[in-house]
């Protein structure tokens, strides 16, 4: 998995690319480092470049959500497609996450 971080004022967009699996834990730590933002800051995961997540990947979404809650950040995800969208639906994560259209 690769990622890019784009800051725009009081919001940050993090685009995830490729396959997000067990072996991406270290990369994901760098993603979480981008959550060092003031309370109220908006962070959005753009998942449109993501081809696949496994259960470890879903776990990383949950870690991101938990980190954002602890820092009082406004966290959302958007753009999931195909297999990623299917797994989010199967795990009903859309009920627990803010999903932007």
């Amino acid at each position: 998995m690769d990622f890019t971080v784009r800051d725009a004022g009081d919001s940050t967009e993090i685009r995830l690319h490729g396959r997000m699996t067990f072996s991406d834990h270290d990369t994901f730590r760098s993603v979480i480092a981008a959550f060092e933002r003031p309370a109220g800051h908006r962070i959005v995961f753009d998942l449109s470049g993501l081809d696949f997540v496994d259960s470890s990947g879903l776990g990383m979404f949950i870690i991101a959500r938990d980190t954002a809650q602890k820092k009082s950040l406004d966290f959302a995800m958007r753009g999931a497609r195909d297999e990623v969208q299917r797994l989010i639906t199967v795990a009903k994560l859309h009920k627990m996450f803010t999903i932007d259209a």
Partner: peptide, 10 residues
């Protein structure tokens, strides 16, 4: 349909 929140996550 086997969708549902994973055990132990929430």
């Amino acid at each position: 349909d086997a969708s549902g929140l994973p055990l132990g996550a929430f």
